[in-house]
Write a protein that binds this DNA or RNA. Structure first.
Lengths: 205, 205
DNA sequence: ATCTGAAGTTAGTATCGCTAACATATGTTA
DNA sequence: TAACATATGTTAGCGATACTAACTTCAGAT
């Protein structure tokens, strides 16, 4: 009674793992075609089920995309924490590392990144998305405070963390939008990240 | 033989001004429903024509959205140049003013702003979009150079202009995505813009 | 052994993007 | 002025899509 991996034919009427396989199919399609050209039908074809099946697990197309977006935020956060492990505490290195992860994620998963931020969906009413985002942002704030040698987050830390976030967020979008062709804007990412970290965190205020 | 304004019934078989009215209807709908919930049919209803009519003027839905995006970029650029008129040359004021316009545009026309940047469409192959964007960016570079007291744009100016652009771009997206609820992040936009301008342009490198 | 509910299916609806074929008006030219 | 060519509308229809309703399958609890 082997379970069906990916999109192969089932031997049993029930699928067994449809929800997570639909999420994976959705994620893959969002990357391949872009979030605005994703279709539920195609995800169904990949998962090898009828087009009505998803509605036993999600109440709409939007909810499927939402699940993918949430998984993306969690992944992004995990990558961030992992990268932090490699840097010594209280240094600018850690700020730079977080920015590197942010941009790297956007570039390697532009479809999901757009889902997480670029869509017109009002994310404000999706509590889980907001919470995960806040959670990640809190990590940045903490690191900024530590650069100051403080263990508690003050208002200046929030301010600086916010400047950093805006910057890497914009940088990520510009990169995945192809606004930075190598010809007209040769970009040394590492250099830029260090530069901005110094300008923002390196000199207080 | 009065021409039909907006979506009222025509007295003649031909519309007379369909192309521009479709663009306007598209723009309005993109704002109201978001770029991802725009439909050609609905634009047709607004313009008071059949659903096949647009295809005499645009070859696809994408091209309609593209036209709206382009118009948006032009509008944004015009607002920028207008605002510059009000500031004395060679001052940080001008940098701040451009940032203010950028963010203000995004906030007041989030739908169009997302069309201009947030979509997965590969804008790189739409020459007109790229050119308009480059054109606007060149203005920023020039202003940065002038802050240095130089009339010619050097590499450092390009670098700094790029940092500024990334920042306001990210800030704009975070704002329209509702990531900055007033409660958790009370944002004094003007203060933030001045701060970032000083950090980036105010001290060379 | 039966019942119940979760998780599939088929079939069908409304909407959408787009095309083909046809209709109408307008401006050019004989 | 009449005929034609062209631009710009229309209707009708196709295939894809999101979603629902009603039915089927199957596993687990009693």
């Amino acid at each position: 009674m082997e379970k069906t991996p990916h999109s192969e034919k089932r031997d049993s009427y029930h699928h067994g793992d449809l929800r997570s396989q639909l999420i994976e199919a959705t994620r893959a399609l969002v990357e391949e075609k872009g979030p605005d050209h994703f279709s539920v039908s195609e995800a169904c074809r990949r998962a090898g089920v009828s087009t009505a099946a998803p509605y036993k697990h999600f109440k709409s197309k939007e909810e499927m995309l939402h699940a993918v977006a949430l998984a993306g935020m969690v992944r992004q956060r995990e990558q961030m924490l992992a990268e932090l492990e490699t840097c010594t505490p209280g240094t600018l290195d850690r700020i730079v590392a977080m920015g590197r992860v942010y941009v790297r994620f956007a570039v390697s998963e532009p479809g999901v990144f757009r889902l997480m931020f670029g869509l017109s969906e009002d994310h404000a009413d999706h509590v889980d998305l907001v919470e995960t985002g806040d959670n990640t942002f809190a990590v940045v704030q903490r690191e900024v405070a530590r650069c100051r040698g403080s263990m508690t987050v003050e208002e200046t830390d929030v301010h600086q963390a916010f400047l950093l976030w805006s910057f890497v967020h914009g940088l990520s979008f510009l990169m995945i939008d192809g606004k930075l062709t190598d010809t007209k804007m040769p970009l040394d990412l590492e250099h830029v990240l260090v530069d901005i970290a110094q300008r923002v965190v390196g000199q207080g205020r």
